[in-house]
């Protein structure tokens, strides 16, 4: 849990303070300095419009990481609520929710996101909608699974006998036990959201220029691959680093939880 907490701290720091560290205005066009190589003034060079790549990357954290964070939390909220409703709400509710989940899972999430974002018209809100709508199913499955296993647990039965309302039971007796496994799912979904945002940005369906989003930066850089290949390296490197760090933190948490299970 500590690795994930540290990671969340670093990412929130990047989202909040990243733009403040930027040496230049990320959208300031500077044609005389276009496509300059890395140097003293522009540490990572400039893009085709002479914008400082380092500054764009730092500002981009707010879009690529911040949006991914937001989207993965929306998925967490929707998915957990539906999963618990399926576990606690009786057979009909369970059937309806799980068949809906199956339907949403019966399609590659990113392809669905491309279709949805593309049809809604490119833009940040379409992006958020598309990735949230396709990003809740894993939480639902896990929440329902754990929820079902908790239903016959002693303290849940006691809470029912005490006459606690279903909402209070969900809040006090289900959520705390769900938290660790949901956090593992969340790390995976957070990483997927980062990849999804940059993929949609790369296809031109995501955050629109001139906003500095990493995927759309890659799209810009692609045209000038022959002359300034480095320009294409940076955004990808940042995405890979973030996704790798999140995945490793998630793996560590999963291993720690598995260790807990074997001990008790």
């Amino acid at each position: 849990m500590r690795s994930v907490a540290t990671l969340v701290g670093v990412i929130l720091f990047l989202i909040v303070f990243g733009p403040l560290l930027a040496p230049h205005d990320p959208t300031a066009i500077d044609i005389p300095h276009r496509l300059s190589p890395p140097g003293e003034e522009f540490l990572l060079g400039t893009d085709a419009l002479g914008r400082d790549i380092l500054s764009r990357l730092l500002h981009g954290a707010r879009w690529s990481l911040g949006l991914a964070f937001f989207i993965s939390l929306i998925g967490l909220a929707i998915g957990t609520a539906l999963g618990l409703a399926a576990a606690l709400g009786g057979k009909v509710v369970d059937w309806a929710i799980m068949r809906t989940t199956d339907t949403f899972l019966a399609f590659p999430e990113l392809v669905a996101a491309v279709v949805i974002a593309g049809l809604m018209g490119a833009g940040t809100w379409s992006l958020i909608f598309a990735l949230s709508v396709t990003g809740w199913m894993r939480y639902t499955r896990v929440a329902r699974g754990v929820g079902l296993s908790l239903r016959t647990r002693g303290y849940v039965v006691q809470a029912q006998l005490a006459g606690l309302s279903p909402l209070a039971i969900a809040r006090w007796h289900y959520l705390p036990s769900l938290l660790p496994s949901l956090t593992v799912v969340w790390t995976g979904m957070f990483a997927r959201a980062i990849l999804g945002i940059s993929a949609l940005g790369f296809l031109g369906f995501g955050v629109q220029p001139p906003l500095p989003e990493w995927g759309s930066m890659l799209l810009d850089a692609r045209v000038h691959m022959r002359s300034t290949p480095l320009q294409m390296i940076w955004p990808g490197l940042v995405v890979v680093t973030c996704v790798l760090a999140i995945n490793l933190a998630g793996d560590a948490l999963r291993d720690a939880l598995a260790g807990d299970d074997t001990r008790t």
Partner: peptide, 16 residues
């Protein structure tokens, strides 16, 4: 671990 984290579009561009 690396292969899961590398987005296909970036890897494709690197290979090109």
């Amino acid at each position: 671990s690396l292969g899961v984290a590398i987005p296909a579009y970036w890897l494709g561009l690197l290979l090109i």
